[in-house]
Nucleic acid binder design. Sequence first.
DNA 1: AGTATTTACATAAGAATCTTAGGTATAGCA
DNA 2: TGCTATACCTAAGATTCTTATGTAAATACT
Lengths: 109, 109
Amino acid sequence: MNPKLLRGSLDTIIIKLLNDNGEMYGYEISQKVKEITGDAIKITEGALYPSLHKLEGKGVLSVETRSIGNRYRKYYSITTRGKSELATMLDDMKTYMESMQLLINPKLA
Amino acid sequence: MNPKLLRGSLDTIIIKLLNDNGEMYGYEISQKVKEITGDAIKITEGALYPSLHKLEGKGVLSVETRSIGNRYRKYYSITTRGKSELATMLDDMKTYMESMQLLINPKLA
DNA sequence: AGTATTTACATAAGAATCTTAGGTATAGCA
DNA sequence: TGCTATACCTAAGATTCTTATGTAAATACT
């Protein structure tokens, strides 16, 4: 898929997945997106991790680091603040998709 | 509308409009987008004109400058090359939108 | 046992695509 | 006369990616 089209929607995807699935760690999010979209969307790590840090910094997500054997994972959850932001983001996405349909679909009139 | 969501889809919008409506000039394109989307999407001139120049440079669009009284307008048309690129762009957009539906919609299973 | 792949985190340089802010000039209207 | 719309344009800066790279443990393969 054209990666340019993804620009701007990564945050929405992350927050929506965390809202629906409860806590997840970064790698798990990237796998889930591939699974759901049938490999159509692949989130690169270079985009994912900075976004998670940014969203945490904004108070949209919270983190908890857990030890798994000799390793660690950083589990992210959506905050109350994140839930209200998600509502706006989904509205924006819906508006965008409806507009694109109008622009791109063969005339329905 | 969240302008971030538009990132990456401007070229597709321009080329699709030119494909459907025949030749158009820049300002006309920006008005048409506002009209079709009910002001949901507003293309800024700072984004529009550089994109038109880029697409012309790539051979996707052709231009013809015409005098209108004491002024001029630059009319853009889609080239054969542009038509084949449009097909790919629309496919990509369709895939993107379907993927976003899967990620964002309440579970349909 | 040794090697490759997957899992899991991370950052940095550079590219692409916007926004914002300016500039120029004609046309139309009050 | 002055304001708004039309119509083109560019440049600086912000944002958001890709690509490349690094580290290290767990797992699978041979």
